[in-house]
């Protein structure tokens, strides 16, 4: 696998470590970490204060019954351990969101497709499929957008993003991602507010595509 060049900023990773991010953003970060040993190591460092604070936390006595109940369950059969295929397109965190055999893509025009994975009032996560050489409409963001490349690559005003690379865009960035030549680009993207498009037609389509 090619080396990853664009990682998770520490402040964002710290929020993930202590559980402050919602599902859509957590999904993107967990997927990146699954592909990236460096961010996995940093996550470990950011969990360390939680461990020390736990060691020093004021204790509350636990009943003997609770302990006995746990010890009595030690022989229970273990739940089946999942077997992961390292080379696959969708890393394990996506398992419960994507049906690998029957993906539910919807067409957005120009060969671009999307699959919404999770969505609520504050954020959403989706897969984007962009044919090689094809552009995603020029757009800015009302909030933060995380984009993680799972296959192929894209290029925009800020650089080139290949498999495992994470782009973080906020409301200051207006960009036009274009899929690189070669394989179609498949990305996992999360936003914490509706994207605002610059041109009229995509803006009219926005409620329909829910980007």
């Amino acid at each position: 696998m090619t080396p990853i060049h664009h990682h998770i900023p520490e402040a964002l990773l710290a929020d993930y470590a202590r559980g402050a991010l919602d599902e859509a953003f957590s999904l993107v970060l967990a997927t990146h970490i699954s592909l990236c040993d460096q961010c996995r190591a940093t996550l470990g460092a950011l969990e360390a204060p939680g461990g020390v604070l736990l060691e020093e936390a004021a204790a509350a006595p636990v009943s003997d019954a609770a302990k006995a109940a746990v010890l009595a369950q030690l022989d229970d059969a273990l739940p089946q351990q999942p077997v992961y295929r390292k080379d696959r397109l969708y890393p394990a965190p996506l398992d419960e969101f994507v049906n690998d055999d029957n993906p539910r893509w919807s067409k957005m025009g120009g060969g671009v497709k999307q699959m919404i994975l999770t969505q609520n009032a504050s954020s959403s996560a989706r897969l984007l499929y962009i044919p090689a050489g094809q552009a995603v409409p020029d757009h800015g963001h009302n909030g933060m957008e995380l984009t993680l490349v799972l296959q192929g690559a894209f290029v925009d005003e800020t650089g080139t993003y290949a498999k495992g690379d994470l782009e973080i865009a906020d409301s200051d960035l207006e960009h036009t991602p274009v899929a690189a030549p070669g394989a179609p680009c498949i990305c996992l993207a999360a936003t914490d507010a509706a994207l605002r498009f610059n041109s009229l037609i995509p803006r009219l389509l926005q409620p329909i595509f829910r980007i």
Partner: peptide, 10 residues
Amino acid sequence: LVQDYNPASA
């Protein structure tokens, strides 16, 4: 531990 989120610099 911490650096600022700086989205553009990614």
